[in-house]
Design a protein around this nucleic acid. Structure first.
Lengths: 239, 239
DNA sequence: CCCGGAATATGATTTTTATCATGTTTCCGG
DNA sequence: CCGGAAACATGATAAAAATCATATTCCGGG
């Protein structure tokens, strides 16, 4: 696996703005230039922590390259994955906007490049740019919608369906490799269990079943979806 | 129970603005006057639907009096309560702001008075009032925080703890009656099960247990918290 | 005040899921 | 390329929760 290095750092924001996922692409041109000047880019190795639950936010992040998980630690110490972040996505805005501490930690799933924009700059830009502010409203509304959908599923669907759903979710987020069937991300079984909200062994078992039924194919950490139709049927989702 | 009638309708917004919970109290004075002029107030009897999952929002609501639950219907038809609304709270803003259909229905838990503010007016006010917009950002961030906390609990905590937590949640939301121990809201056992995310019988059973242990007292729909300390311990929460 | 349906309660049983135990594989660093 | 720890796998068992069954109570309308 060719991982990128420090010389790849400090990328142009245009790289991110290109992606339609990014709210910043709605920022005015001069704001983007300010960001370009003041932003600080850093490199995180797989497993490293970008920010920690309970810490105070001093700005907003933007993932330029790599993959990041947002995890919340439960009372028993077990972690739960609340969101997945992909390149172009902003990161850490919830806490910043509500003036809270972080209530989840951001951890690199693979080697990642992250830009940091100081709070004052970001808030200043927001105050002058109501379009961008509305974009943030939309982003949060959308996050809330997803969270509430997941809430309902967690409350009502059996683990088997949720495992299938988690696979679909990861696939939706990070897409396939060039073969069109292998999910372009490496999650440990424990990670998957922590998305689903179940014990690691249970997740392993159900993945094995899906493997036996030739709905997915497991080879190490690589997971391929052989029969998307069937997987959707197992997940029992309609959207 | 003295329920209020139609002549109580069309209340001044100041009634709601008084409450610190209301984002509208941050609106500028002239905006409040516009709202006062254009708003439409309606009365809903217990069980009536204010808006339906899947419908398009044409404005934003504000609960003036009464109690409302926001419920999402799962694939199997079972409903899940995602939020509770109290007087002074806005309602239906998530869908409006993300330009979505409603993804939950609003149902009156008891007789309620609700004001409606047309979309154009509200968006117009927002565009001119960045303080109010920021207040909406805060509101959504806060909702998202709560949703993600609940997500983690739903994923990790056993039903018993979640039942206790649900009682604490209802109490936090609607408070006590004048006796300082009876929860000032009537939820059916099924409602409670739909907050907790469990079968109705299971909820009933666990409530009975708490009743036997003299931690709560059940008398019909009225639930009193006899020993708050113990209940918090059962819920196993630290905040 | 009485009736009947709905809500509540509780027991018995089954299903689902977690936990414990124990191999097996994978993969990374030396 | 080897050794060992971590991740993965799988079986056995226990615990948790859902479902099914059946009373009992509550409550609103006639």
């Amino acid at each position: 696996m060719a991982s990128f290095q420090h010389h790849d750092l400090d990328p142009k924001c245009s790289r991110c703005s290109e992606r339609f996922t990014n709210v910043f692409c709605r920022a005015k041109y001069d704001a983007l230039q300010d960001i370009e000047k003041e932003k600080i880019c850093s490199f995180y190795k797989k497993g490293e922590v970008i920010f920690k639950e309970g810490a105070r936010p001093f700005g907003i992040f933007c993932l330029n390259r790599g993959k990041i998980k947002l995890v919340k630690t439960g009372d028993d110490g077990r972690e739960h994955i609340v969101r997945l972040v992909r390149p172009g996505d902003p990161l850490g805005y919830r806490s910043l906007l509500s003036g809270d501490k972080y209530n989840a930690s951001a951890i690199a799933i693979e080697d990642s490049g992250v830009c940091f924009i100081p709070k004052e700059l970001f808030i200043g830009i927001l105050a002058k740019d109501s379009d961008l502010t509305f974009e943030m409203l939309r982003l949060l509304s959308d996050d809330l919608k997803k969270a509430e959908l997941q809430l309902t599923h967690l409350a009502q669907k059996p683990v088997r369906e949720r495992v299938a759903e988690a696979l679909l979710f990861i696939k939706e987020t990070y897409g396939f490799e060039s073969d069109g069937m292998t999910i372009n991300a490496s999650f440990s079984r424990e990670d998957i269990a922590n998305i689903v909200g179940t014990a690691t062994e249970t997740a392993i078992r159900l993945l094995s079943e899906l493997n036996k039924d030739s709905i997915i194919k497991l080879s190490g950490k690589k997971i391929s979806i052989l029969d998307l139709e069937k997987l959707i049927k197992v997940a029992n989702v309609f959207d």
